[in-house]
Write a protein that binds this DNA or RNA. Structure first.
Length: 227
DNA sequence: AGATGATCATAT
DNA sequence: ATATGATCATCT
């Protein structure tokens, strides 16, 4: 296979290219991309995501943009079990801990990131080597009205706590579908946040993550067909 | 076993 | 430190 470094020009082109990856092993994709295959993902957690980005022509780098800005599409890999169950939560974006006045759901990063997602289920089996794992069938998703309400309700609950200086009281157990968890390089990473008395405090950076039950719901509505 | 809290790599 | 890409590893 030839690697396609061009950016896809249309949604259809992106979709076709993503579907063409179904069934392919990470070994062949890595070889085509000229990438070395890690023994495991312990020290290469974002490796699969980057591998797929390369194959689909996404903009590499650290820019705070969607993967395909012209198409308004965000790419997300989703590790799944052989039964099609999500194996991990899905990181969405970092959580703003200061300057939160005025930010509402409609203008939130969470909503904007999730407006249109190209999900790429990937073989998440840890009992086989990375090279042997394969890509699943890609699909486009936009949140339904009901799903957007689920996310909005959780987002508002989290943002209320953050705005009220209760960041440190936030637990990953909170939120039915969307949770807030640490998102940092290590325990030394600190950022500003609003403290209980309204003053600025230093805390571990946090991020919004989709709980498994949310992505499970997406997978089910997508792959459940009437037989 | 599954989820929570912690962590890993890279670029800017 | 912040953004991107996430999974690890410990605890319950």
């Amino acid at each position: 296979m030839q690697l396609e470094p061009r950016r896809p020009q249309t949604i259809d082109e992106l979709y076709d290219r993503a579907l063409a990856l179904a069934g392919r092993s990470f070994a062949e994709l890595a070889r085509a991309a000229g990438l070395a295959i890690p023994d495991d993902l312990r020290h290469a957690k974002g490796w699969v995501g980057q591998l797929l980005e390369t194959h689909l022509g996404a903009t590499a780098g650290s820019k705070p943009l969607q993967d395909f800005p012209e198409l308004g599409v965000e790419l997300k890999t989703l590790p799944v079990t052989p039964e099609g169950e999500p194996l991990e939560t899905t990181f969405v974006c970092s959580a703003p801990l200061t300057h939160t006045t005025g930010v509402d759901w409609l203008s939130s990063n969470v909503r904007n990131k999730l407006r249109c997602v190209l999900w790429l289920p990937i073989d998440g089996r840890r009992d086989i080597g990375v090279a042997e794992r394969v890509v699943g069938t890609a699909f486009f998703w936009r949140p339904s009205t009901a799903q957007e309400q689920q996310l909005r309700a959780d987002w508002e609950e989290h943002m209320d706590r953050i705005a009220l200086g209760q960041v440190e009281a936030i637990t990953a157990r909170q939120g039915e579908w969307l949770q807030v968890r640490p998102k940092a390089a290590d325990g030394n990473a600190l950022t500003d946040a609003v403290g209980p008395d309204g003053r600025i405090i230093r805390v571990r950076p946090r991020g919004f993550y989709l709980k498994k039950r949310f992505t499970r719901q997406i997978l089910q509505e997508t792959f459940t067909n009437a037989c």
